[in-house]
């Protein structure tokens, strides 16, 4: 019996019919394009807005293409993460709350397949959105500024994809553990943002933590991160993802009886 296939098909249909698989990538693409475009027009914009005395010249340093790509990442770290968390906060908690889960749970359901089918669907959407967005940014930076070396870009985007998977795993595990979508989102946002802040404040004391992935991803643009720290960070992130997957599956099963009958 292949429950994973059946359940993944359901998730696929759902994401198709609530259009998540279309609009989430489009929003990431939009933010990917906006960053290089604003940078390109910033001098002209300041020129037309400011009442500068005659003869004053604004000298803005032309941003490096790598810096713009890093700024796109900054946008994703705020708005992008919030969108992914809000889009998938109800994956499990919402099904339990609305009562739609009951007709699944009453069957001999594999909670592992149930959880993993949702995780894979959200993961595909998240990683695809980030790649499309970053590629759009890459193309615009190439048109308006200079080309970023393609290998550097691939290392940058590839490293960042691990971070996206971690965030997706956090939100799905939270959705399995929390009684409703709102609390799942609150817990995920707190984990993703506050732990990053904590890492940036105290992170000088250690060199590897999953929270440093976005920073290490950006370092690929300028050279390469310390490889030992880098691999340890990735290994730790993957360990986190695996632990959260087990936790999420366990919680999905444990909390099944809280589904509305």
């Amino acid at each position: 019996m292949n429950q994973f296939g059946v359940l993944f098909r359901k998730e696929w249909r759902e994401n198709l019919r609530n259009y998540k698989i279309f609009w989430i990538p489009i929003v990431f693409i939009l933010f990917g394009i906006l960053e290089p475009v604003t940078n390109y027009f910033l001098p002209q914009l300041l020129d037309s807005l400011g009442n500068l005395p005659e003869g004053a010249v604004i000298e803005l340093p032309v941003p490096q293409p790598e810096e713009i790509l890093q700024a796109v990442l900054g946008q994703y770290q705020l708005i992008g993460m919030a969108i992914l968390i809000l889009a998938y906060m109800g994956s499990i908690a919402g099904e339990r709350k609305s009562g739609t889960a009951t007709l699944l749970y009453v069957r001999p359901l594999s909670f592992r397949d149930y959880f993993l089918s949702k995780w894979l669907m959200a993961g595909i959407t998240g990683v695809m959105s980030v790649w499309l967005g970053l590629l759009a940014a890459y193309y615009y930076i190439f048109l308006l500024f200079e080309q970023v070396e393609i290998i550097s870009f691939l290392q940058f985007a590839g490293t960042y994809s691990v971070w996206i998977l971690l965030v997706i795993t956090i939100v799905l595990a939270a959705s399995a553990a929390m009684p409703n979508a709102g609390m799942a989102a609150a817990v995920s946002l707190a984990l993703v943002f506050f732990m990053q802040i904590a890492d940036s404040l105290l992170g000088a004391y250690w060199t590897f933590s999953p929270m440093k992935i976005p920073a290490y991803a950006a370092q690929w643009l300028y050279g390469k991160p310390d490889m030992s720290d880098y691999w340890w960070t990735l290994a730790l992130a993957i360990a986190f993802i695996l632990a959260l997957l087990f936790f999420g599956i366990w919680m999905a099963k444990r909390k099944a009886s809280t589904a509305k009958v």
């Binding site: 489009i26 693409i29 939009l30 394009i33 906006l34 475009v37 615009y140 048109l143 308006l144």
Partner: peptide, 10 residues
């Protein structure tokens, strides 16, 4: 042409 996609998406 470069700005059009932004407008379209929005």
């Amino acid at each position: 042409l470069l700005l059009l996609p932004i407008l379209f998406i929005q």
